[in-house]
C-alpha cells in the first residue's frame, strides 16, 4: 500500500457573487499517494481549478472555503495559519497554471522571477539564486538558458514560457505538483513535449502530481489514477485502467466516447447533449441527470452516493452496477 501524500475530504468552496452563491466545489474527496499522478477530469466549470486552488488556499475573492479537511504532511491545511501556508506554497507544493502568458509578470525578466522564489524559500543571495535559475532552465530543457534568463516573457514562445512556469513550480523540489491544464493553451506538438518533460521531472524529483485536464487522451497517457468531476462533485474515481476499460458512470462514458480516436473503429462522434449545469442552482438529485441518456425518476429525486464497484474503483450512480457502459478501449 502506497503512502498517502494528500487527502482531501468533503471540500466545499463557494463563491459569493452578486448573481448568487456559486457552489464551485460542493463535497469533493480525493487522495494522492506518494509517487503517483492523479488526474482530475471534467469540463470547464466542473470545479477542477477551484479544487486545486483550495488545496493551496489561494482561492481569490469572492470565493471562500466553507468546510472540509485537507491533510498534507500530517497537517490540516485548512487549519494552518497564512504564514505557515506561505512556507508551503512554492516550496512543498508547486502550482503550474494554465496560461503561461498571463501568469508571468510582464515587467520582470524570467531570471528575476525565478530567483525571487529561490531567495524567498531557500535564503540564497541574488547571485546564487540566478545561477540556480539558469540550472533550472536547463533542467526543464530550455536551450541557451544563459540568454533566456535575461529575457522578458513577451519575448518568449508559449512553450518556453510554460517551461519557465514549470521551473518556477519545481524550483524548490516540492513533494506535490499541481498542474492545472498545463498544455491546454499550447500547440498540439508542444503539448507532447511538455508532458514528457513533466514526466521526467516527476521521476527525477520524486514528486507526486495532480494533473487537471479535460482531455481524456492526456489522462490515458500520464495518469495512474483519475477522478471524474462534474458540477463540483466527484462522480467516479479509480485507476486509469479501471475507469477507461470499465467506466461505471454515464458521464465517464460520455467523456470517453467523445474523444476522436483514429485507431478505433467508430460510426460517429458522440456529443454530450445539454449544457454545463448552473452552479448557483444545481439540478436536484444526480446533477448529471438533465444530460444523461439513462436518467430515470430516481436520478432526479435522490442524490447518488459514491459506492465501490471494485477495489479502488468508486462511482456515484444509481444504476452503476446495472449499466453496461461502452468504452472505446474495449469495444
Amino acid at each position: 500500500m502506497a503512502e498517502t501524500l494528500l487527502r482531501v475530504e468533503g471540500l466545499r468552496t463557494y463563491f459569493y457573487t452578486w448573481a448568487g452563491v456559486v457552489k464551485a466545489v460542493d463535497g469533493v474527496s480525493l487522495h494522492v499517494d506518494k509517487g503517483e499522478t492523479l488526474g482530475i477530469v471534467g469540463e470547464s466549470g466542473s470545479g477542477k481549478t477551484v479544487t486545486a486552488l483550495s488545496i493551496m488556499r489561494i482561492v481569490p475573492a469572492p470565493g471562500k472555503i466553507i468546510e472540509g479537511k485537507i491533510e498534507f504532511q500530517r497537517k490540516n491545511l485548512l487549519a494552518e495559519s497564512e504564514e505557515e501556508m506561505r512556507k508551503l506554497r512554492g516550496r512543498e507544493i508547486g502550482y503550474i497554471f494554465q496560461d503561461p502568458t498571463s501568469t508571468l509578470d510582464p515587467v520582470y525578466t524570467v531570471g528575476e522571477q525565478l530567483s525571487e522564489v529561490l531567495v524567498r524559500h531557500q535564503n540564497l543571495d541574488k547571485k546564487s539564486a540566478m545561477d540556480r535559475a539558469v540550472e533550472l532552465l536547463r533542467i526543464v530543457e530550455i536551450p541557451d538558458p544563459e540568454i533566456r534568463i535575461n529575457q522578458y516573457p513577451h519575448q518568449l514562445s508559449g512553450g518556453t514560457k510554460q517551461r519557465i512556469a514549470i521551473a518556477r513550480a519545481i524550483c524548490c523540489s516540492p513533494s506535490l505538483l499541481l498542474a492545472d491544464e498545463p498544455t491546454t493553451a499550447l500547440d498540439v506538438t508542444i503539448q507532447a513535449q511538455i508532458l514528457e518533460t513533466l514526466k521526467g521531472l516527476k521521476d527525477r524529483f520524486n514528486m507526486s502530481m495532480v494533473l487537471i485536464t479535460h482531455d481524456m487522451g492526456i489522462v490515458a497517457e500520464t495518469c495512474d489514477r483519475v477522478v471524474i468531476l462534474y458540477a463540483g462533485q466527484v462522480y467516479e474515481t479509480g485507476t486509469t485502467e479501471q475507469v477507461f476499460e470499465n467506466p461505471k458512470h454515464p458521464y465517464t462514458e460520455a467523456l470517453l466516447t467523445s474523444v476522436p480516436h483514429l485507431a478505433l473503429k467508430r460510426e460517429r462522434l458522440s456529443v454530450i447533449q445539454g449544457n454545463i449545469p448552473n452552479l448557483i442552482e444545481p439540478p436536484s438529485g444526480c446533477r448529471f441527470h438533465p444530460r444523461c441518456k439513462y436518467a430515470q425518476q430516481i436520478c432526479i429525486d435522490k442524490v447518488p452516493e459514491l459506492e465501490p464497484m471494485e477495489e479502488g474503483h468508486l462511482a456515484a450512480c444509481h444504476f452503476a452496477r446495472e449499466l453496461k457502459l461502452k468504452s472505446p478501449v474495449t469495444s
Partner: peptide, 29 residues
C-alpha cells in the same frame, strides 16, 4: 487542441440582453 466535444458551448443566461445586464449591475452600485 485537445478534445472537441467535452467542452459544451456556454450559453448566455436566457434572453437577457447585455444592456439589461449592465443596467442591473448599475443599479447595484
Amino acid at each position: 487542441m485537445a478534445s472537441l466535444s467535452s467542452r459544451p458551448r456556454k450559453r448566455r443566461g436566457s434572453g437577457v440582453s447585455q444592456w439589461e445586464l449592465a443596467w442591473r449591475r448599475l443599479k447595484m452600485n
